[in-house]
Design a binder for these strands. Structure first.
Lengths: 254, 254
DNA sequence: TAGTGGTCTAGACCACAAT
DNA sequence: TTGTGGTCTAGACCACTAC
């Protein structure tokens, strides 16, 4: 028979496994408090750092979250679904796409936004195919579901296209949605490109998404709306890595 | 004027910032060795754990990787691109999609695979819409680029469709690719659905992808090929979170 | 063999949450 | 006021890498 290495298991892994299994057995429900560092030190006879390492494993897996001063709690395992199918269409979206994403959650969902004229940074200029320093409209969003922030985004549109038109302000006019607004000024969006990556959360992202400063990761979409070869909008979208699922349906032509 | 909190910065954050900036300045190139725990202890006059925490920040950001016994090294920042556009078409793919993804890398790319008849687990049954225990063909893949593993996947096809046909073995016949193989047995794939998530790497994933056991995260695609409402293939694809970018082009109908 | 990062002990002080 | 998690010190042993 095969001789499994069977190396001595590490204490912190064993402890993490114990707690994980207890959660799986239902001994701890979502929102329940888990045994903290002090309890684990006594229960397993380990040092502070070892108990802490065990909880760090669960935190990184997204199973638990530490609330400083309060304790460690079991987190919700449900992911919000962002479905790209039918998300980008000419029909005036109603309700807006994000509300559909959040339809599963119990509490109210909503968002805040602020639009501002800016000059294109190097990156924004590259995304939109314009010159650095050209005027753009930047709109920053933060979306909420279940009372907590679940999505950040920054959208940029070249003011050479929208400046002085009724759709200059993305969230102020009667027409909403990039595609419909661009239609209104004669720019026919025919293609949306989304690039998906995962990376560590920056300090500011962790703060605004109410994630732990250390060890958090995010899902990032870099999106562009195109009218032919012209990029009419660029957008960075940031999700807590363990809270979202992105769905893409790809038609296979005959 | 606004009174910024200006809370005392933490030592480990300062140290991490110093090293990150040194990398940005080009003082350390990809593959170079960074100052280790012992050097940082002396240079900054901190304890082992604090130096370690500083390096942990960089490791989590994907900027550095620790090689036990050897040191901490600057990692490559280039992401492989997996483009869904034209990935799923009736034309016989040549070269296979993965080779296109890896076209940017300098060293050779390739993959290993192994196919095996199995019984559908609960999850596979649910994915394929069949009964638990039904026979399926499971094919496990591991893809390499630049000499290191960059992608794992597991594909399942119901043997009720492919069993006894020339395309029963995904990688053995003259016809390759799910769509072409299914065409060969009269199943016309018209839609591929991909669900993208991010999560912590499991122990076994970290091992097979040669990632650190702690703190690694992965991008996961759960993919299904559909012929009408019939799921003819399901597949889990796992990427190192900081090594890949997934691209989706979504056409906007008139 | 010397040095490395991974794990672990046994303490400490702090800001903050709950009471 | 008490307890919590976040940070930090000052040691230790180990398996492994590089020489």
């Amino acid at each position: 028979m095969t001789d499994t290495p069977d190396r001595a298991p590490h204490r912190y892994v064993e402890i993490a496994n114990d707690i994980r299994e207890a959660i799986a057995r239902g001994e701890y429900q979502v929102g329940d408090r888990l045994p903290g560092e002090n309890v684990l030190m006594q229960r397993y006879g380990v040092a502070r750092a070892t108990a802490r390492d065990a909880l760090a494993v669960l935190r990184h897996e997204g199973l638990a979250i530490a609330r400083p001063g309060a304790g460690v709690y079991v987190t919700s395992r449900k992911r919000l679904i962002r479905d790209s199918t039918d998300r980008y269409s000419r029909r005036q979206a109603s309700p807006p796409p994000f509300m559909t994403d959040a339809a599963n959650s119990n509490h109210e969902a909503g968002w805040e936004h602020v639009s501002e004229r800016k000059s294109a940074t190097t990156r924004v200029a590259e995304l939109l195919g314009i010159a650095v320093g050209e005027p753009v409209m930047e709109t920053a969003y933060r979306f909420f579901a279940d009372g907590s922030p679940v999505q950040l985004s920054w959208s940029w549109e070249p003011l050479s296209l929208t400046g002085g038109t009724p759709v200059e302000q993305p969230e102020e006019g009667s027409v909403t949605g990039v595609i419909a607004r661009m239609d209104a000024i004669g720019q026919r969006v025919d293609r949306v490109v989304e690039k998906v990556t995962a990376r560590a959360a920056t300090t500011s992202e962790a703060e605004r998404l109410q994630l732990p400063q250390r060890g958090s990761y995010v899902l990032v979409i870099e999106r562009r709306h195109y009218a032919g070869d012209l990029a009419v909008e660029a957008c960075d979208i940031v999700f807590p890595g363990d809270r979202y699922e992105l769905t893409y349906a790809i038609p296979v032509p005959d």
